[in-house]
Amino acid sequence: MASPSKRGHGGFEDLGDPDLVPIMSIMCILIPMLIYSFVLYEVKVQEISLPKFGGPSTSNSKSKVLNLAILVAKDQHIIKIQGGEKEAKEITVKKKKFRVCPAEVPCEECAGEEYEDYDFPGLYAEVAKLKDSKAFAEVDSINIGADDTVPWRVMARTIDSVRARLEKPNYPDLCTYSRAKPLRVKTTDADGKEVTTAAEMFPKIVFVML
């Protein structure tokens, strides 16, 4: 007489645990590979508007709308105020000497060698002053242009200097400016809820070609 089947009696043959070691080996290779290719920094975007080819209007024009433009030259920033009732005005912010300051050293104790760089704290102070004036209180767009050779990193920092307001109206050096926090203000959103957002100066950036 044949022995009764285990399955027939509702039982299963004990096959033991599956051998997971080869799968584990593949995973141990795959996971470090993926971690290596994983982006560990935060990527954000800066929106810009289409360039206006031909550059800003000439200094002789006297349109009623005030137009603020920043031009990045090889050795300075030029702030151009055009339009309105007054004559066109130019403010230059020349490159300045700053001290090399490693991230771990406090700015007050910074004693590195001197090097020349764009005066972003100076540009920020000038733009903040303009934004505080009555003429630009309601203006939210700014034109930014540059010499052909100006690198994107300089443009990105220039945009930062004009877009958002920082905690203080001016900073003595590049180190304290670079480490400054954006000013947060309380506003109400579309639903009427109170929210804290970064205070803006000129959030709409328009690229122009010279």
Binding site: K44, V45, Q46, R153, M155, A156, R157, I159, D160, A198
Partner: peptide
């Protein structure tokens, strides 16, 4: 390039 922009892609 580094920036303080805070808009998510």
């Amino acid at each position: 390039a580094t920036s303080t922009a805070d808009v998510s892609p």
